[in-house]
Amino acid sequence: MTTATAPAALRLKVPYVASTIGRKVVMAVTGLVLFGFVLVHMIGNLTLYAGPEAMDGYSRFLHTFLHGGGLWIARVVLLTCAVLHVWSAASLTLDSWAARPVGYRLWKAKDSTYASRTMRWGGVILFLFIIFHILNLTLGHFDPGYVPGDVYANVVHAFRQWPVSVFYIVAMFALGLHLDHGVWSLFHTLGFSHPRYKRWLREAARGFAILLVVGNCSFPIAVLAGWVR
C-alpha cells in the first residue's frame, strides 16, 4: 500500500561542513582548542613574574620540546584551527546577513548579551591583534631592541611602549568578551545542554574569561608600573 520513500539521509546533497550546524561545530571545536591555547599561554607567561631565567627557560623548553618539533606541531595545529575558526565565522556571518536583507526600523534586544552581540567585531579585533602580536613578540617587529630568544627582555621592551600595551589591553578585553560567550556557547553547539548545569557552564565561562583578562592584562600593567623591569 505504502511506497517507501528513500531514507532522507541518503538524499542529502550538502556536505557536512557546508551545513550551518557543521560549520558551527567546526567553529566550536577549533574554538575549544584556541581557548585551551590561550589558557596555557597565559599560565606559561606567568613565568614573567619569576624573573628572566624562568621565562627564558620556559621559552627554551618550548623550543626544544620533542627536539624542536613540539612547537611546530603546535603552530600548525593552532594555525589550522585559527584559519578554520575564521573561515566558519566569516561564512556564517555572510549567510546570516543575507538571511535578513531588510532590517528593522526599531529593534530591542532582550536575552542576547553584549558579549554575544560583539562576537563578530570582537573576533575581528582579536584577529588583527594576533597578527600584530606575532609580528611583535615572535618576529620582533615594532621593537628596535628585539633579541631572538631573549623573551623576558623582549616582553618588557614591548610593553614599555604604551601604545603596544594599550592595544594589548584592549585586545584582552575583546578576548574576555569573546570567551564569555564563546566558551559556554561552544558546548551548546556541540550538543551539551542541561538545565541543571547550564548556569554553571555560563558562570565557568565567565570565570575563565575574567581569569584570562586579569592574568594577561597584568603583564603590561606590571611593566608600565615598573614592577617588572
Partner: peptide, 24 residues
C-alpha cells in the same frame, strides 16, 4: 537521525541564518 539531517538541510536551503546562541 535522518530526520535531523534532512530538516537541517532544508532549513539551510530556505535561506535562514545560523545560530550563534544569542537566546533571542
Amino acid at each position: 537521525y535522518e530526520r535531523a539531517a534532512a530538516m537541517v538541510e532544508t532549513m539551510d536551503a530556505e535561506g535562514f541564518g545560523s545560530c550563534t546562541n544569542h537566546n533571542e
